[in-house]
Structure formats: C-alpha cells, structure tokens
C-alpha cells in the first residue's frame, strides 16, 4: 500500500469514527431539546434503562448510546418492539434483490447504448433527443409503471414488482453510464495516447485490448460507489409504491412513526456500508490504475 493510499484510508477511518461519535449526540438533542414527541422520550428512557433521566449526566447517556451503536445494538423499534438491527437486516436482504440486478442492468444497458450512440450518428442524435426521459424522477416512473401494470391486468403484487422496481431504479444510472462511456470513447479515440501506440506499431485492436478496456473498467468502478449511494438513498421511491418491504420502505414507515431507533439504525448502517464500499473501491482503483500511484 503506497503513502497516498495509506493517507486516504486513515482519513476515511478518522472521518467515519467522527461520524460515529457525532451520531449519539442526536438522540440527546432530541430528548433534551424536546424535538421529539413525549411518547418517544418515555420509550427512549425505558430503552436505555434510565429511569431517572434528570439525574443522569449527559456524558452517561452519550456513552451509553455510543456503546450501543458500536456494538450494533440500536435498540428496539418504538412502533413494533422488534430490534432495530433485525429490521434493518431483513430490509437489506429484500432490497438487495432489487439493487444487485439494477446495478448489473444499468452497466449492461448503459454500455450497449453508449457503444451504439458512439458508432452511429443517427443513434447519437436519437440519444441526444431522448435524454430528457432519463431525467424523469424514478418515483414518477414507478407510479406510471404501477398504473400500467394494473391497467394491463398484471398482478403487480407478484414477483413482477421486483422487475418493475429494478427498471425504475436503473433509469438514471443508465443515463450516467451511457454519457460517461460516450465521453471516454470519444476521448480515447482522439487521444495522443492512441496515436503514440499506433506509431509504435500496435494495431488499434491491440491498443484497445491492452489499455483502453482497462480505462473503461476504471471508469465503471468510479461510478459504482456513486451509483450505490444514489440507489440506497432513493430506494424508498421504488419500494414504497410497489410495496417491497426493503430498507427504503421500512425507512419511510419508521419516519412516519417517528421510530428513532430504526431511523438511526438505517443511517448508521448506510454510512458504515458506503464508507466500507468506498474504501474497497478506492483500493481496487489504486491497484488497477497506475496513473494514481505514480503521481
């Protein structure tokens, strides 16, 4: 691991630790600043086994929350009584059924459209004119699909809902991947790099095989993290309409019930997961891309 990588890793870990340290402050503010409903204050007090709230120091409450967070003990749902961790993990398993195929579909379709638009002028013009479709928010696409499925008589409560949710979730990533691929292909096609290697006697196919595909893979890897952030963040836009009981759906329910342990659980889980994914992606990128390590 080179110095640059080490620094990045250290910084990420430090910031992640700081985030974990800040999060327990939130319930304290909620309880003591009276932001929450009195009902939650009582339940929160019982959860923490702090029967005499006024007599307990802020530090004790903070350290108790922090310990619980680090031990992945986020308390029990104030609405259902289930542990927040079990709610989050069950939601995650359901959400993965949509997220993983969506990522694969986005890459495949985005690549195909990108190559197609780059190879043919007509295709490029069609793509440029139809780009606005990909700007439409996924919630709107979900609603329209749901209505359409019902209209054509498809039982949208069956497994079809996963397919529909998957399509709605991958619309924007397809747009991002297509545009990025187009740009990379254009840049590579007109680069000095290509001319230089051709002058050295390499054929175009050889250059593509040896170098260019690698650049595209590195590019794809860069989107992966952002795509995951986008998909996890806006998951509730597809899960709520289709009634898929994944993380997004449960997050919406938790917010509407002011179920703070579950909300905090989702936030900590999301932040930790994406930080780890970020670190892994960065490590792979540094391993693959000699441009990053040599500078």
């Amino acid at each position: 691991m080179n110095e640059r990588m080490q620094k990045r890793v250290i910084y990420r870990i430090v910031f992640l630790a700081l985030t974990v340290l800040v999060i327990p402050l939130v319930p304290i503010v909620i309880i003591f600043a009276g932001v929450s409903s009195p009902e939650y204050v009582i339940k929160g007090t019982l959860n923490m086994d702090l029967s005499q709230m006024q007599a307990v120091s802020y530090w004790k409450i903070y350290s108790s929350f922090l310990r619980n967070i680090i031990c992945f003990d986020w308390g029990t749902s104030t609405a259902s009584g289930q542990s927040a961790l079990s709610i989050v993990s069950s939601g995650m398993l359901e959400s993965l059924k949509i997220i993983i195929p969506s990522i694969i579909i986005s890459y495949i379709i985005g690549t195909l459209i990108g190559i197609w638009a780059e190879k043919s002028k007509k295709a490029n013009s069609i793509w440029n004119k139809s780009q606005f479709i990909f700007y439409i928010p996924m919630i709107v696409i979900s609603y329209l699909m749901l209505y359409f499925l019902s209209f054509v008589g498809v039982d949208f409560l069956s497994n079809v809902k996963y397919v529909a949710a998957m399509i709605a979730l991958s619309v924007y990533p397809v747009y991002v991947i297509t545009n990025a691929l187009k740009k990379t292909l254009q840049e590579l096609g007109s680069s000095d790099f290509l001319v230089f290697h051709m002058a050295l006697g390499f054929s175009t196919d050889e250059i593509w095989e040896k170098f260019c595909y690698k650049f595209i893979v590195i590019d794809y890897l860069s989107f992966f993290e952002n795509m995951l952030i986008f998909m996890i963040g806006f998951l509730f836009f597809v899960e709520t309409p289709f009634g898929i009981h994944g993380m997004g759906y449960k997050f919406v329910i938790a917010i509407q019930r002011f179920d703070y342990p579950v909300i905090i659980g989702f936030c900590i889980f999301g932040i930790t997961l994406l930080s780890i994914v970020g670190l892994i992606v960065e490590a792979i990128k540094l391993k693959l891309d000699p441009r990053l390590t040599s500078v």
Binding site: K7, Y11, L16, I229, G233, Y260, S275
Partner: peptide
C-alpha cells in the same frame, strides 16, 4: 488543503440524502 480535500471526498461518498433526513428529523 489535504484535510479539506479528504473531508469533502468523504462527504461526497456518504449517503447525503440519509444524512439530510437525519438532520431534518433533528431540526424538525
């Protein structure tokens, strides 16, 4: 500069929407 860049890089890799929701619940 190094601190700022790493902080921003960390920030942009976080689920900003989740953080925003978290803050919104806090402030109302």
């Amino acid at each position: 500069r190094e601190f700022f860049l790493n902080l921003v890089h960390y920030w942009v890799t976080l689920p900003v929407l989740l953080i925003a929701v978290f803050l919104l619940i806090l402030v109302g």
